[in-house]
Design a protein around this nucleic acid. Structure first.
Length: 235
DNA sequence: AAACTGGACAACCGCAGCCTC
DNA sequence: TGAGGCTGCGGTTGTCCAGTT
């Protein structure tokens, strides 16, 4: 009955990752290339985390091809469009955005885009104008108070609907442009590490390590693992 | 200056689906 | 064929931090 937990949680560390843990994970992945089994990663990398946590950390934060930073206006519009087609399938949506993770897009949706759509009078779930919801809201207000809706409210809804129409037109345009530009493949893949341009790959990875080092901003007390093991990856 | 609040995002949890034995 | 293991995914929670009172 029931399944064993994915890992033995006793003695495992939880919560935010430290710089030292990040470095251990990065070094392990660079030294080993592909990760056939995340379950073994913590043990082999010397981390007191479960494999699942390591995978998540790598995918959402440490991967070299991550873009990071705030979403642009056009990115947000594309997310809205894709969400209208795909629903909450964040990984599918994320596959259309180089360097963006499903978690990042999901967070952005929940904190920003949802509100944006509501302001435009669109239902974030159905992507349709919330006329019905407005009526329902109106009824609710009627229940709360026998006062009828003021003209201001009606005007506000009308403006909202006009904006919605404009927005839907933009949708159509975005659709057309996206149809031409759906062929994204990740610019970085561990599986590709055997290709002829390995040297170039190493150079770019080296640059990335420097970059990571800078943004992780090593604290003075932490001594990175043995330099000779950190790079390059074994053949 | 301290307490409070809300936004942003990192991380965790549990389930579904695929794969292997 | 079904049970169990593993990964990936989506929902939710926790934590940090900036702005406000």
């Amino acid at each position: 009955m029931g399944r064993k937990p994915c890992c033995d949680k006793v003695g495992l560390k939880r919560g935010p990752w430290t710089i030292e843990e990040d470095h251990k994970l990065i070094n392990f992945i660079f030294n080993n290339g592909t990760i056939p089994c995340w379950r073994n990663v913590p043990k082999l990398a010397g981390l007191l985390r479960c494999g699942k946590s390591c995978r998540l950390r790598w995918i959402n934060y440490l991967r070299p091809d991550l873009k990071r930073g705030t979403f642009t206006e056009s990115e947000e519009e594309q997310i809205i469009l894709l969400h209208s087609r795909l629903g909450n399938r964040w990984s599918k949506i994320a596959s259309h955005f180089p360097g963006r993770t499903d978690n990042e897009i999901k967070n952005n949706w929940n904190t920003k885009i949802k509100k944006k759509l509501k302001l435009l009078g669109l239902d974030p779930v159905t992507h349709k104008p919330v006329e019905d919801a407005g009526k329902a809201d109106g009824n609710k207000k009627q229940e709360e108070s026998s006062e009828t809706k003021s003209e201001d409210v009606v005007e506000e809804i009308q403006v909202s609907l006009d904006e919605t129409n404009d927005f839907l037109k933009d949708y159509e345009m975005l659709c057309k442009s996206l149809e031409l530009d759906y062929s994204y493949t990740s610019s970085f893949s561990m599986e590709e590490s055997n290709n002829p341009s390995m040297a170039e790959e190493e150079d770019s990875l080296k640059q990335w390590v420097d970059c990571v080092d800078s943004f992780l901003s090593w604290d003075d007390n932490f001594i990175p693992p043995e330099e000779e093991n950190s790079f390059p990856p074994p053949e």
